[in-house]
Write a protein that binds this DNA or RNA. Structure first.
Length: 580
DNA sequence: TTAGGGTTAG
């Protein structure tokens, strides 16, 4: 009686709570053989991934009297299909250790998980097991292996496995095709594509995105035109290609022309606008989306953060956390939010993010740690920044740069220089930001010759110094009294200097009471930033120190007449100090 | 029940 009732219950969809109730009845009635069926129904009923469901099912699996292949493989499939690859592999491992022999379903799902997280050892071990147990003739397993080796970039083995498949289907062909495309071997990809007995929209999309990524848009468009059917991925591949080529307007015209834009289309366009500094265009597209998901939030928050609109980045971050929105941020969201905090010098918000990470069990990876290094350093907590830097698994260019810049702006020149040398020894090529950091460090301690040499070495690294780099060196030379040299440097700049460059010279003139050159610098500053009053006060002070009281008075009067009000200077250092 | 393409980061 009870068996019939429970069996009929297990034919319907089950929520996790219903599953729990049913499971109690199963255990009480001693009908434990129904547990696998319960797991299958529970997982099948979950429309989306639910960590709670996954936890519950894994708990039943662990406590089952008889471990069951059916239930375990179903769980592995569920986890792998919902992006929980590490979880999937841990259940696969448990399956082994409990003495169960995996079936083809478990094996192909586990291989997919290894492919997605690039777990080479795991995949190789499974391949070994597959060869022993004869699954190597099952097309699902073979195709999963082709995909695994393709994703790893080992096209020789991928091809070998592929050639052994009898009865290749379109998924098998697409897996090897995607491998060659990813590897950048378009000639092989084209030959596989030509050879395929049947092509579907994924085969065409792979080829289009291959040519688009190689910036061969003529060929990409030719294929796109010939495609028997297109889906949003086909359009997105073309959009990505045009963006890669810097043809953002052409990308936008494809975006506008596509029949069904999805989140990926929006995210691709938003991040392109972000890269080119068109924040308004990005925001316009973002506002068009009614349903905003995590990736869309990430794209827009990153756009604000990368374009120095930190306040708006944090506003959006706040919005996604509101109970009526409730989108759970991930590491990428947090990295952008931390970067925004850093720009604002807002260490309090940064601390709040740290607490949030602890509460939600979000671990610190190198990427996030680097964002925090940048934040701490800019808020003056350089020792804490270095503690984090030491804890990094791998020190890459961005980590070194954040730390060098941190030392630079905190006046710790010796450490900055040592770290710069360590970085060069590790064969990491510095970028423009690294040089900003190291030049700032030299400037802080007034190491003129060393700083100048470093600046001159930028070209050897294939880097064209920016206006900001010139401003630092002008400041460096100027503070040391080498005003003429500084002036010459400005005159020989390959681009138009911005007001900051002339401002650095003006400041140096005020330190060394050079009225004549100060007037030249001031004139340029005024042309470039007519609304700024700071330069006038600086020149007025220079006049005053030189005893030219009339000129000083005249200048101050003209400032008042023009209605220019001196805005008090503020910086992140002041902000962080006032917080302490 | 199992395998394939397109997006986001300091």
């Amino acid at each position: 009686m009870q068996l019939a009732r429970l069996t009929s219950l297990l034919e319907k969809s089950l929520t996790t709570d219903q599953a729990k109730q049913t499971h109690c009845q199963i255990v009480v009635s001693g009908l434990n053989d129904l547990e696998p069926l319960l797991i299958r129904q529970t997982l099948n009923s979950a429309a989306r991934y639910s960590p709670r469901t996954a936890r519950y099912v894994k708990a039943i699996l662990r406590r089952m009297q008889k471990p069951d292949v059916f239930a375990t493989s179903f769980t592995i499939r569920y986890l792998s299909q919902h992006g929980q690859f590490r979880e999937a592999l841990s259940v696969y491992e448990q399956m082994h250790s409990s003495g169960l022999f995996p079936n083809t379903f478990a094996v192909s799902s586990a291989l997919k998980a290894c492919a997605r997280i690039l777990c080479k050892i795991g995949g190789l071990m499974i391949h070994g097991q597959v060869q022993k147990c004869g699954f190597c003739k099952v097309v699902f397993v073979q195709t999963a292996l082709v995909d695994f080796y393709s994703k790893l970039g080992d096209m020789v083995i991928a091809r070998k496995v592929f050639d052994e498949i009898r009865g290749k289907n379109v998924v098998s062909w697409n897996s090897i095709l995607a491998g060659y495309v990813k590897y950048g071997d378009l000639a092989m990809a084209q030959s596989v594509f030509d050879e395929m007995p049947a092509k579907d929209v994924i085969s065409w999309n792979s080829m289009v995105s291959g040519y688009a990524r190689a910036k061969n848009m003529e060929q990409a468009y030719e294929l796109f035109r010939r495609m028997p059917q297109r889906n949003s991925a086909s359009w997105n591949a073309m959009i990505t290609g045009y963006i890669e080529c810097g043809k953002i307007e052409l990308a936008r015209s494809f975006f506008d022309a596509m029949p069904d834009r999805n989140n990926v289309s929006y995210i691709t366009m938003i991040s392109a606008y972000s890269k080119y500094g068109s924040v308004e265009s990005a925001k316009e597209l973002y506002d068009q989306m009614a349903e905003k998901d995590l990736l869309l939030y990430n794209a827009m928050i990153a756009c604000f953060a990368q374009n120095y609109r930190a306040k708006e980045a944090l506003q959006l971050f706040d919005e996604m956390l509101k109970p009526n929105v409730n989108v759970q941020p991930d590491k990428m969201t947090l990295a952008s939010a931390i970067s925004a905090c850093s720009q604002l010098g807002d260490s309090k918000y940064g601390t709040w993010i740290e607490t949030y990470m602890r509460e939600w069990g979000i671990g610190m990876d190198d990427h996030l740690a680097t964002s925090f290094i940048d934040l701490y350093a800019k808020c003056g907590n350089i020792d804490k920044a270095y503690e984090l830097f030491k804890s990094l698994q791998k020190r890459d260019l961005v980590a070194y740069t954040a730390m060098i810049l941190g030392y630079g702006i905190n006046g710790r020149a010796k450490e900055a220089i040592e770290l710069f040398e360590e970085m060069m020894d590790a064969d990491i090529i510095p970028n423009l930001v690294t040089f900003t950091g190291i030049l700032t460090a030299y400037n802080h301690v007034g190491l003129v010759e060393e700083g100048y040499r470093c600046f001159m070495s930028m070209q050897r690294h294939g880097l064209l110094p920016s206006q900001d780099h010139y401003a630092i060196v002008v400041d460096l030379l100027g503070r040391a009294g080498r005003l003429e040299e500084a002036h010459e440097l400005i005159k020989n700049m390959p681009m138009e200097p911005h007001a900051g460059v002339w401002g650095a010279l003006l400041l140096a003139c005020s330190l060394h009471n050079n009225v004549e050159l100060a007037e030249v610098a001031w004139k340029n500053c005024c042309e470039l930033e007519p609304d700024s009053s700071g330069y006038h006060s600086l020149l007025a002070n220079i006049y005053a120190s030189a005893g030219r009281w009339d000129d000083a008075k005249r200048l101050r009067r003209s400032v008042e007449e023009k209605g220019l009000v001196k805005i008090p200077g503020s910086s992140w250092m002041e902000c962080s100090e006032s917080q302490q």
